[in-house]
Amino acid sequence: MTAFVIRRLLQAVLVLFVTSIIVFVGVYAIGDPLEILLPPDATMAERAQVTQALGLDQPLPIQYGHFLWNALQGDLGTSFVYNQPSISVILARLPATLELAFCALVLAIIIGLPLGLISGLKAGSATDETIMTGSILGFSLPNFWQGMMLIMIFSVYLGWLPSTGRGQTGTIFGIETSLATWDGIRHLILPALNLSLAKIALVIRLTRTGVQETMPLDFVKFAKARGLSSRRIVFVHVLKNILIPIVTVIGVEFGSLIAFAVVTETIFAWPGVGKLIIDSINILDRPIVVAYILVVVTMFILINLFVDILYSLLDPRIRSKAR
């Protein structure tokens, strides 16, 4: 197991290195930040000074070498706009996005899994039809429209929940989070629900298919023949089998939750990295873009590693191969 984790970490470093080259070259290829940073009437001397200050006069490989050397020391460049280390600009905003994505994921599981189980066990019934129709809506309606409808219903008509901002935060175990205060939770509900709707639909479908594939298998019939209760058969024998594909998909989807957070953060004015990256791309704040992508790639790698470890905990057949 340890060898497996170490091997995966070495692969991760390689992936990060390749990503940094692609991102650096890609970002370098689009536009000239000077056009945006400097006023149109700037003199040639001013231009030359800024170009030199930002290191833009060097050839690309040298700029990359410079970037890599600094990156290894934890410095991903200074934001042209905020005039702060880009990594700290991102890390200051990241907790808000992670919190949003994490809550959306939890909602997807605690709502999607039970509904999927009911749907799969009562396939063809009116309950199943209702749940499946609901999940089609969750999939197919545009995310931003769902967000606006949530605001219309819960903030405008009913007036139950606030529609914008993050609200008051507090600290739990040293982490700054909205979950610590009631005001924070009230602000979190709508954006988290908005972000999770499509994932709830996905989890419902995965669970339903899993239940329908697993219930007719011999080991379920054998479990019945051993006199086990239906509850134990469903929650231990069936659920543990179908969790394997669900965990894999959810892990991969966590990354897409962070990416989709861009839309939700814009609708609900949530101060996360999604909003930051859109602004930074618009004004070609290269260090922020590069740092953002590297941070996201790192998170993807860590999530996948975590999923693989979880996977082997769930499935003994994989555990013995990984040894």
Partner: peptide, 17 residues
């Protein structure tokens, strides 16, 4: 009353000891 099934590959749940 106990029962033994035909295919021993399929009667035990693969993810449980």
């Amino acid at each position: 009353i106990a029962m033994i099934f035909q295919d021993p590959m399929m009667t035990l749940n693969p993810v449980l000891s």
